[in-house]
Amino acid sequence: MKTKTLKQIIMAVFAAAALAAAGWWFFRSCVSPMKNGGRETSFSAVTLSRLSPTRQLRVMSIYKEVVVGRTKTENTLLGPMERKIYAIYPAQLNIGYDLSEFGDDWIRASHDTVYVSLPPVKVLNEGGQFVDEARRRVPIESGSWTAGEMNELRTRANQEMLLQCAEDGCFSEATAQGRALIESLLHSLGYRNVVIDGVTLPSPRTSTPGR
């Protein structure tokens, strides 16, 4: 009889503890803004800075969403626990030419032919930033993450974007695209023949050019 009563007491204590834990979770969830409305958002004035001139010709832009994540072990009251975070970063890589790097003699015209010497295409993003971090999504997240850890995640997303684009052959495609673009631009400016890096690209036009 005593054993049975003891078991019942233990079960009741466990049930009460579980109910209390669920109640605490529910209470904190209720007062979390993510679950309910009642939020107020305000903005500071938008400041515009570092306005500077540039001379970039973008020939291709690649948009991707890259997934990066990491895990760590945190010591809690219940012992060491694994925490993880996986984030999806939208990213845009711009490839093209920096015209300020073109030499003085990059282009030369002679009668109806124009000779062009092009440098290799390059990444045009300022500061090597490809990700649109303000549009990131974090579908998997447990534990708390410091500013340093989030910065590291963003750096890895930038590296992953560059790596994926290089593996996809985007730079060789951008090189071909860039040559086609310069050729098309010079044809539209009146030249019948365009010679890029020693390769002649005849005009697809049948009409008489202006020069």
Binding site: P33, R39, E40, T41, S42, F43, S44, A45, V46, T47, L48, S49, R50, L51, S52, P53, T54, R55, Q56, L57, R58, V59, M60, S61, I62, Y63, K64, E65, V67, I88, G96, L124, E126, C170, Q177, L181
Partner: peptide, 24 residues
């Protein structure tokens, strides 16, 4: 997870940085 290539040629001539602080 999607991917897209944009081949529109753009001549960028001005670069700037904009900042805002959001309070919630």
């Amino acid at each position: 997870i999607i991917g897209e290539v944009n081949r529109t040629p753009m001549l960028y001539t001005v670069v700037a940085s904009a900042q805002v602080i959001v309070t919630e």
